[in-house]
């Protein structure tokens, strides 16, 4: 589903964010990406959503080389990727419904189909009763779930999450991860970047670790957990 081939990224000014990173996430897989801040997690996700282009190497999604995607095509690529952000990226002056409906409006769904899908997505994240609320009136966990509903409302085959549990307590974080597991069971590939090692430690998922822009481990969480200097946060 996502394949990196010897990808390096150097920002203007010489800062090397990624060095020869290679990995392959299979269709239908759920995997975590971890590392200290500044290790290159965000850069890696930006290469998948084409917010940045690799300096060297190739990024492929479903076998398509993203280097061949023109600027005008980027919008269509992003419709295939559900993205979730730590900062939610919600429109605070629009209702929950309007926020979740945005991808469908952009794609030109009919009013009826939009309403049906938005309600289904909000049902999945357990916010059916907040349809007409403004995001500002919701808690942090609820706002994050609105973001998730927006990411899955057009049923993308791939979900990307950047620190989705960043501002949440462990219990809420676990709920969010359970949601991702539900989508994964439905066949969606899920790729989550997080520095919440405690969260990862409680589950047996493939985990990729970045350090100074290099991929240092790639495997199940408990295989490297002992080496990690970081204390799990329980």
């Amino acid at each position: 589903m996502i394949k990196f081939e010897e990808v390096s990224k150097t920002y203007p000014g010489g800062q090397q964010a990624l060095r020869k990173v290679s990995f392959h996430i299979e269709p239908g897989e759920m995997a975590f990406l971890t590392g200290h801040s500044g290790a290159g997690k965000s850069t890696l996700l930006k290469l998948i959503s084409i917010m940045e282009r690799p300096t060297v190497g190739r990024v492929l999604i479903n076998g398509h080389d993203l280097n061949t995607i023109t600027r005008r095509q980027i919008a269509f690529i992003r419709r295939d990727i559900g993205m979730i952000f730590q900062s939610h990226q919600l429109l605070m002056d629009r209702t929950v419904f309007d926020n979740v409906a945005l991808p469908l409006v952009i794609e030109g769904y009919s009013r009826r189909e939009t309403s049906k899908r938005v309600h289904a997505a909000l049902e999945m994240v357990g916010l059916s009763d907040k349809v007409n609320n403004l995001p500002i009136t919701l808690s942090g966990g609820e706002q994050q779930r609105v973001g998730i509903a927006r990411a899955v409302v057009n049923k993308p085959p791939l979900l990307l999450a950047d620190e989705p549990t960043g501002n949440l307590d462990p219990k809420l974080s676990m709920e969010i991860i359970r949601l991702f597991e539900d989508f994964n069971r439905a066949g969606v590939s899920v790729f989550i970047a997080t520095h919440d090692l405690g969260l990862i430690a409680r589950m047996r998922y493939r985990t990729l670790t970045l350090k100074d822009g290099q991929m240092i481990t790639d495997g199940l969480a408990d295989e490297w957990q002992q080496d990690s200097a970081q204390e799990p946060v329980f």
Partner: peptide, 16 residues
Amino acid sequence: RDEILVMKLVGATDSF
């Protein structure tokens, strides 16, 4: 600005 950013993130074309 914020709205345009979010729209670009969820796949709005420039013409939209």
